[in-house]
């Protein structure tokens, strides 16, 4: 099952913030982590991650710093800010509220469906 494009777009911000909340990271590693976490179901064009990271930076959710990685490659590392953590908590609440509502609606559907089967 591949996750729908619009849903991925909406999920991208909290997902990236959550990954950065674990530890600071750079673009390539963030994408790898996204793949791991979703068993490869969530994927987007690699390059598109960077405009997103830059937007989060200008919103003040993350900070950035150029550093040389252990392998000797220059990389731009991103770290989450306290404001970023607040936004993550808020978005997480929104997502769980949304999925719960969907879950309940579907469960009702199943229950009423079963009830109708019982009547018949």
């Amino acid at each position: 099952m591949r996750i729908d494009k619009d849903l991925v777009a909406a999920l991208a911000t909290p997902l990236v913030l959550a990954i950065l909340a674990e530890a600071e990271s750079y673009g390539y590693a963030i994408l790898k982590r996204v793949r791991e976490l979703s068993d490869g179901e969530i994927e987007w064009t690699d390059g598109m991650l960077y405009p997103l990271l830059h937007r989060l930076r200008s919103l003040g959710y993350v900070t950035e710093e150029w550093r040389v990685s252990p392998e000797g490659r220059k990389r731009r590392y991103y770290a989450i800010t306290p404001r970023g953590r607040e936004v993550l908590a808020e978005q997480r609440l929104q997502w769980s509220t949304a999925t719960e509502a969907l879950e309940r609606a579907v469960r009702r559907l199943e229950l009423t469906g079963r009830a109708r089967l019982g009547e018949a």
Binding site: T45, G47, Y50, P51
Partner: peptide
């Protein structure tokens, strides 16, 4: 190819900057 078409990438960067 995985990085994406340069045109699309440029457009996305342009929206942010």
């Amino acid at each position: 190819r995985r990085l994406g078409a340069v045109d699309a990438l440029t457009r996305e960067f342009a929206r942010v900057h």
